[in-house]
Design a protein around this nucleic acid. Structure first.
Lengths: 243, 243
DNA sequence: TCAATAGTGTCTATGAGACAATATCTT
DNA sequence: AAGATATTGTCTCATAGACACTATTGA
């Protein structure tokens, strides 16, 4: 790709056009997770248009370089459109770029995952979106490479659950310690020791007691807590047993 | 962005042009690390052209959608061009996309870091590349947002050194346990206990003894090992103390 | 009082840190 | 033998798991 030589940067930029070279499509896909009725769910969208019309897919969209200040803004726009939620836990998972994932051409997608407390989905626009149980979603033959992206997101979440506080982002606050532990157990797929679980939280002082309590049927009321905002990204140094 | 409706996917794709919408520039940047003379070094390139002409930068380049099968191929191409190395440890770090990082326009870059044993740099082409000591590199006022990218790469590596085998990728194989431990210590910035270090390696059986040994001046010869290929991505469950 | 749920006490097991002791080289 | 470097033995400490025990509520 030979280029003329320019004396100043301004000179160079004035002559520069991105259309001199073909460039990839740029998109963002978001695995939006929540917990509902004792199951981990992911938001799936029924595609209303080509390509892969009428197949289920993850939430996603092209980067709008006029409207989106940055990649995260694209992710938040996609998320807000589908769920109405504007302050999720949002983490970049991976970026995939190749010529085979999208029939429209060489495509580069930044994949994020978002964790939110359950909300009923507003059905906006022509695309139908739905919370799908994870085990179901993995059998839906999702569009593009979304099956693999979802699998990667699950792998990441199941790794992080062992040493982070991410499940706190999947349930409404305030929550009881039992509710929080239950969120961990649903993601992990097995039960953990109540005492170990509480000891870690206590030792690291990552929760705030609201002073309120909540009663589950009969039995002693449980204290309610919130996650300290400054501890949202806290990582324990030692992991829980991986079964 | 209104679009006509198409009956079939083939119909849709035939009418599709990526130039209907403006899209970001797509690039890959690579923090190439090595260990040399008891220091962690990063490969820096003196930019021979605008923008940021004559400033130091990380290795990087635009995605070539005709030549690169995928993003990793772009990273490997950049790496091979600068170092001649084709089989590095290569890990995706983060992807940054915004309108401010590159004066040429909205730019999306997938950032990788590569870990390689030291090699003298072939000086190919017009751009001068050099191994820079990390502490120096952080003061070079790198081009674009490369200062931040380098800082992120360092953060990632210093986190992973506590529970992974990544330092083994920075030294030539085979290596002695003392050499490997030294690689860890350079990255960590403090010394660790020989016994703990060796115990972990022994317990997890992640190294292969070559049967050879190597003598460092006077003193007992040290056994030589290589990293088992299938353990390249092994993670210890517990971390070393973070000082 | 009993059932149910929340919360605690405490013993064991694992694996990291500390550091002393032993082994195998060169000079 | 002395000095240097490699390798191992073993005690201590921190933290997770197991599990029994106590606490507080409604019926």
């Amino acid at each position: 790709m030979p280029q003329p030589t320019h004396t100043t940067e301004a000179d160079f930029l004035a002559a520069y056009s991105i259309h001199d070279y073909p460039i990839p499509l740029a998109s963002v896909d978001v695995c939006i997770f929540t917990l509902h009725e004792d199951h981990l769910k992911v938001l799936c969208v029924k595609r209303s248009d080509h390509p892969h019309k009428d197949r289920w897919a993850l939430a996603g969209g092209f980067v709008d370089i006029r409207g989106d200040d940055n990649l995260e803004a694209t992710a938040l726009r996609v998320l807000a459109k589908k769920t109405g939620i504007t302050t999720p836990y949002l983490e970049q998972l991976v970026t995939i770029g190749n010529n085979s994932r999208d029939p429209r051409g060489w495509s580069m997608t930044a994949v994020y995952f978002a964790l939110i407390p359950y909300v009923a989905l507003p059905q906006t626009g022509s695309e139908q979106s739905q919370w799908q149980d994870i085990t179901i979603a993995l059998t839906l033959n999702l569009a593009f490479d979304h099956q693999q992206l979802l699998a990667m997101a699950l792998t990441r979440i199941r790794a992080k659950v062992l040493y982070s506080l991410i499940p706190a982002n999947l349930i409404p606050a305030p929550f009881t310690l039992t509710e929080l532990q239950h969120a961990y157990e649903i993601i992990m797929g097995y039960e953990i020791e109540k005492k170990s679980f509480r000891r870690r939280l206590e030792r690291e002082q990552v929760l705030t007691a609201t002073g309120q309590s909540k009663q589950e049927g009969a039995g002693r009321p449980a204290a309610l807590y919130t996650l300290k905002p400054e501890c949202a990204l806290f990582n324990f140094k030692r992991q829980l047993d991986s079964e």
